[in-house]
Structure formats: C-alpha cells, structure tokens
C-alpha cells in the first residue's frame, strides 16, 4: 500500500488511544495529504515537546518546564493541594476551572492486583509538601473505586501528623443524572452524603 516509512507511521498511530489499525490508516492518509499544512507542523511540535518534556519535580505534572506552569504561577492558591491519581485527572480538573490551588500527582493508586504499594506512589513527596506551613488543606481527588478510596484512607493516615485539613471529593448524583438510571451503589452513597438545603 505504501512505503516502509508510511507503514511505520500507521503502526505508530494505531498505538494511540482511540485509534485502531483502520482509523490509524485514515489519520495517516489525512496527514499525507496535508504535508505542509499539518504533517510538518505536527512533527515539529512532537519533537519540541519530546525535547522539552519534564515531570515536575514538585507536583509530578508533565510539562515543558520544571517546575511546571501551575507550580510556577504566583496566582495559584498555595494553601490548597489537590491530590490526583494521574496527569489526566489534573487536566480534567483544570478543564472545569473549579480549582485554583496547586496539585500533587500520585502516579496511580494502591492496587493489590497490579502490585502497586505505597512505595510506588509519590506519597512521601506529598507528606513533605503538606508539612509546609503555607499548606492548609489537602483535597484527595481520587476515583470513587475500591482502589481509589483505599488510597484515600491510606493517604489520610499518612497526613495525620501534618497539621492540615484533609478532605475528599463528594460521591453522588451526577449533573443531569436521573435517579431511575443510577446504580444502587451511587444512589445509596448519594443518600448517605445528603445535606440540608
């Protein structure tokens, strides 16, 4: 169908999330047809990011500077730390625009199945950061899963002596959610977490 270079491009594109072999072929063809307008610019952008990519030494975020743009931003609230599992969660919270503090990326959750223990996560770094007198609250924004919440309880124990308020995200009815379609677990959690209006 094409030269070895094109086949290699298709093969690499098919490794991206959401792309199978067929859609990778379509994406590759799209790039080939827009060599100057898109393909070269994309290649340059990929090279530039790959050359400059760092894991932030403070929070674990992925950025082209170290410390990352969020840790460097003086307008961010240094008193609040939001702990997340992964950089994808950081991007999700940033997208919402609801949080103006700083982050700490744990790099996963405690998992018996995958053999992930506390040593594999950035918990020691979090305890060090929480000991900073400027930090007043740590928000544990882990997923509402057994592993996520087991990590929440573990981190809460580790932060017990740090002198900071520790909170976690609420669990319950999603915006636009209809009770009829909710699973029993979410409904019972929402009922338990009800609050006065």
């Amino acid at each position: 169908m094409g030269g070895a270079e094109i086949e290699r491009l298709i093969q690499l594109l098919s490794k991206l999330p959401g792309l199978g072999p067929r859609s990778a072929r379509r994406a590759a063809l799209h790039l080939l047809k827009r060599r100057d307008g898109l393909m070269l610019a994309l290649a340059q952008a990929l090279t530039a990011v790959a050359d400059a990519l760092h894991s932030c030494s403070l929070c674990g975020n992925l950025d082209t500077s170290d410390p990352c743009a969020i840790c460097n931003d003086p307008r961010r609230d240094a008193a609040t730390l939001c702990v997340i599992e992964d950089v994808a969660d950081l991007w999700a919270i940033e997208r919402s625009g609801a949080f103006r503090g700083r982050y700490h990326v744990l790099g996963g959750v405690l998992s018996a199945l995958d053999g992930v223990g506390p040593e594999e996560l950035a918990i020691a770094g979090l305890v060090r950061r929480a000991a900073d007198p400027a930090v007043k609250e740590v928000i544990l924004a882990m997923n509402a899963t057994v592993e996520g919440q087991a990590t929440v309880h573990y981190v809460t124990d580790r932060l017990a002596g740090a002198g900071v308020a520790v909170s976690r995200l609420a669990h319950g009815v999603p915006i636009g959610g209809e009770l009829d379609y909710l699973d029993d677990g979410t409904l019972s959690t929402a009922l338990n977490a009800r609050r006065p209006v």
Partner: peptide, 15 residues
C-alpha cells in the same frame, strides 16, 4: 448487589 459502594467511606470496612 453493589457491596463495594456501601463500604467506600469506612476505612476499616473497605480494608
């Protein structure tokens, strides 16, 4: 039955 959801908030039961 979603047993897991019922214990998420209690550290010892979840453990």
């Amino acid at each position: 039955r979603a047993y897991s959801a019922a214990v998420l908030d209690d550290p010892l039961r979840l453990a």
